[in-house]
Simulated scan of single mutants.
Amino acid sequence: MSGQIIGLHDWFETPPGRYLLDWEQDQFDQAVADVFGYHALQLGLPEVQALRANRMPHRWLALSESDMAPRSSLVTDFSALPFPANSLDLVVLPHTLELSPDPHATLREVERVLVPEGRVVICGLNPASLWGMRQRRARIYQRLGFGELFLPDAGEFIGYRRMRDWLRLLSFEVESGRFGIYRPAVRSEAWLERCHWFDSAGERWWPIFGAVYFLVAVKRVRGMRLLSADWRRAAARASAPVPIAGRVHREHRDHRDHVRRSPHRKKQGKGS
Rank of each mutant, 00 (worst) to 15 (best):
V174Q: 10
L215K: 07
L169M: 13
F198E: 02
G180N: 05
P207N: 12
L215I: 05
M163C: 11
K219Q: 10
A190Y: 13
A234G: 14
M224E: 14
A238D: 08
E175M: 07
L170P: 05
F172H: 10
Y160W: 06
A238T: 12
F179Q: 03
F172V: 02
G155V: 02
G202I: 00
L169T: 11
A201H: 07
E148Y: 02
A190N: 14
A234F: 07
S239H: 15
W197S: 00
A154H: 10
L169F: 15
F146T: 09
I181M: 05
L227I: 06
A240Y: 14
L169P: 03
A238N: 15
F150L: 06
F179P: 01
P184F: 00
V216P: 04
G147T: 00
R232N: 10
P207V: 07
F146M: 06
W206S: 06
P207G: 08
R225E: 07
A240P: 10
E148T: 01
P184W: 00
A234K: 12
E173Q: 13
A190D: 11
D230P: 06
M163G: 04
P152H: 09
G155C: 04
R168W: 15
R178C: 09
F198R: 02
G147P: 01
F172Y: 10
L226G: 14
C195W: 00
F179C: 07
K219L: 02
V221F: 04
V218Y: 11
R178N: 10
E173R: 14
F209I: 02
E173H: 08
F209L: 05
V218M: 12
G210L: 04
P152Q: 06
P152D: 13
R232P: 05
A234Q: 13
Y213V: 08
E173F: 06
W197G: 00
G159C: 05
Y182Q: 02
V174C: 10
F209R: 14
V186Q: 05
R225N: 13
E193I: 01
H196R: 11
R232E: 10
F172N: 07
R222H: 08
S239R: 15
R237A: 12
R194P: 01
E148S: 03
D153M: 00
F146N: 12
I208L: 15
C195M: 03
Y182T: 02
E175I: 10
R232T: 12
I208G: 15
A185H: 08
S228H: 13
A238L: 14
L169S: 15
F209D: 03
R164F: 06
G177K: 14
A217L: 06
V218Q: 14
F146A: 08
A190F: 06
V216I: 07
R161Y: 12
V186M: 04
E148G: 01
R162A: 15
G223R: 13
A234D: 13
A240K: 15
A217Q: 05
W206E: 02
F179S: 04
R222Y: 11
W231Q: 10
L226N: 14
I158Q: 11
P207Q: 09
F198G: 01
D199C: 00
R237T: 08
S239T: 14
L169E: 14
A154R: 06
S200T: 01
R187A: 14
C195D: 01
A211C: 13
I181R: 02
R178A: 11
A201V: 03
F150K: 09
E203Q: 11
W197F: 00
L144Q: 12
